[in-house]
Measured scan of single mutants.
Amino acid sequence: LNLKQAKEEAIKELVDAGIAEKYIKLIANAKTVEGVWTLKDEILTFTV
């Protein structure tokens, strides 16, 4: 999975969960695949 694909998957998951745009922007700015997954997990843990 490359960075672009990771971001697309994570953003789709966050949108489906009804997460606010400000958190989705954090994913869009992530620099690594690991960073994308870590941010996604943290956002889902603390906002859902």
Rank of each mutant, 00 (worst) to 15 (best):
L1F: 12
L1G: 07
L1A: 12
N2G: 12
N2K: 15
N2Q: 13
N2T: 15
L3Q: 01
L3T: 02
L3K: 01
L3W: 01
L3G: 01
K4V: 10
K4T: 10
K4L: 10
K4C: 05
K4R: 11
Q5E: 09
Q5M: 10
Q5H: 10
A6H: 03
A6C: 05
A6Q: 04
A6D: 01
A6M: 04
A6R: 02
A6E: 04
K7N: 01
K7F: 03
K7S: 02
K7I: 10
E8S: 08
E8Y: 10
E8R: 10
E8N: 05
E8W: 09
E9Q: 15
E9M: 15
E9L: 14
E9W: 12
A10Q: 01
A10E: 00
A10I: 04
I11D: 01
I11N: 02
I11H: 03
I11C: 05
I11G: 02
I11V: 08
I11R: 07
I11T: 06
I11L: 05
K12Y: 04
K12D: 03
K12S: 06
K12N: 06
K12A: 08
K12M: 07
E13V: 10
E13Y: 09
E13H: 08
E13G: 04
E13T: 08
L14H: 00
L14T: 01
V15D: 04
V15R: 15
V15Y: 12
V15S: 10
V15T: 12
D16Q: 14
D16F: 11
D16C: 07
D16K: 14
A17P: 01
A17K: 12
A17T: 05
A17R: 12
A17L: 14
G18H: 05
G18N: 07
G18D: 04
I19R: 03
I19S: 04
I19Y: 07
I19E: 01
I19T: 05
I19K: 03
I19L: 06
I19A: 11
A20F: 05
A20N: 11
A20P: 15
A20D: 14
E21L: 10
E21I: 09
E21W: 14
E21T: 09
E21Y: 11
K22C: 09
K22H: 14
K22Q: 09
K22A: 10
K22N: 07
K22D: 09
Y23D: 03
Y23C: 06
Y23I: 04
Y23G: 01
Y23E: 03
I24W: 14
I24D: 01
I24P: 00
K25N: 12
L26G: 03
L26P: 03
L26F: 06
L26D: 04
L26I: 07
I27N: 00
I27A: 01
I27Y: 00
I27G: 00
A28H: 15
A28D: 13
A28E: 15
N29V: 07
N29C: 10
N29T: 09
N29L: 13
N29M: 11
N29I: 07
A30E: 09
A30D: 01
A30F: 01
A30S: 07
A30L: 07
K31C: 07
K31A: 13
K31W: 07
T32R: 02
T32K: 02
T32P: 00
T32Q: 02
T32F: 02
V33S: 03
V33T: 05
V33K: 04
V33H: 03
E34F: 06
E34I: 10
E34K: 09
G35P: 00
G35N: 11
G35T: 09
G35K: 13
G35I: 10
G35R: 14
V36P: 01
V36G: 00
V36Q: 01
V36K: 00
V36C: 02
W37M: 13
W37C: 06
W37R: 12
W37Q: 13
T38R: 15
T38P: 01
T38H: 13
T38W: 14
T38F: 12
T38Y: 12
T38M: 11
L39I: 11
L39G: 01
L39E: 01
L39Y: 04
K40R: 15
K40I: 06
K40C: 06
K40S: 03
D41L: 12
D41Y: 14
D41E: 14
D41M: 15
E42T: 10
E42L: 15
E42S: 11
E42R: 15
E42H: 13
I43K: 00
I43P: 00
I43W: 03
L44D: 02
L44I: 09
L44V: 06
L44Y: 06
T45F: 11
T45M: 14
T45W: 13
T45L: 14
T45P: 04
F46P: 06
F46C: 13
F46I: 12
F46V: 09
F46W: 15
F46E: 11
T47N: 13
T47E: 10
T47D: 09
T47A: 15
T47H: 15
T47V: 15
T47W: 15
T47G: 14
T47F: 15
T47R: 08
V48Y: 06
V48A: 15
V48H: 12
V48P: 09
V48S: 15
V48F: 12
V48E: 12
V48N: 14
V48I: 11
